[in-house]
Amino acid sequence: MIHFNYPHYPLQWYRNANPVSGNAGQFNYKVLRQGGELAAWCWMGVWCMEKTKDVKERRFAFPDKQEQEQQESVDQAIAWLREEFDAHSRAEIEARDGFFTTGPYTPPAPEPPQE
């Protein structure tokens, strides 16, 4: 059985805007500081975030120089990811045929500017 085990990183990791990413079976996630926010994404499947159509995103305040609030933001992001993981069936998470049953998503090309 696959479990969701988010790795432990010190707050300095997030302050420096280093990404945290990983997976638990078909469940994938990424967490990254962007300015005054901590962004968290998750998606199902075998493809990277850029090649997946249905990516969920949630943002949490990450205030400068407020260590307690920063740690709370990290804890909230992890809790949200854990909820998202638990929302999927074990069969979905443990599926092994993703490369054979899906293709990478290609977003539509942007429309040319109208004059």
Rank of each mutant, 00 (worst) to 15 (best):
N23Q: 08
N16M: 10
V55N: 01
G22Y: 04
K65A: 11
M44C: 12
Q26T: 12
T106F: 10
V74Q: 06
V46R: 09
I78L: 07
F4M: 08
E84T: 06
P107A: 11
C48T: 08
E115V: 04
I93V: 08
P112E: 00
E115L: 06
P113T: 00
Y9H: 14
E92Y: 06
Q12V: 12
S89G: 10
D75F: 07
E84R: 05
P63C: 06
W47D: 08
V46L: 09
G45M: 04
N28F: 06
E67I: 05
Y6M: 15
N28L: 05
C48N: 14
W80S: 01
Q34W: 13
A40R: 01
S89P: 08
E94V: 04
D64L: 07
P107H: 04
N5H: 12
L11E: 03
K53M: 13
Q70G: 00
E83C: 03
H8R: 13
K30Y: 12
N28Y: 05
W13R: 04
A40M: 10
G98E: 08
Y29A: 01
Q68E: 13
K30F: 09
Q68P: 06
V46P: 12
R96E: 09
A95K: 08
T101P: 11
A61D: 09
N28R: 10
C48H: 12
L81E: 02
G45T: 06
W41F: 08
D75S: 04
R33Y: 06
S73K: 01
P113D: 02
Y29S: 03
H88P: 07
N23F: 13
F4K: 07
E92T: 11
Q70P: 00
W80F: 00
R90I: 15
R90G: 10
Q26R: 09
I93T: 01
A95V: 09
P10V: 01
K51A: 07
K56A: 08
K65W: 10
F99L: 09
F62Y: 09
W80M: 01
I2R: 02
V20Y: 02
E111T: 06
S21V: 14
H88L: 09
P19E: 15
G25Y: 05
E37W: 11
I2S: 01
W80I: 00
K30V: 07
C42S: 06
Y14I: 00
E72I: 06
A87F: 02
E69C: 09
N16L: 11
R82N: 05
W43P: 04
D97F: 11
Y29M: 02
Q12K: 09
P113M: 04
E69M: 14
H88Q: 08
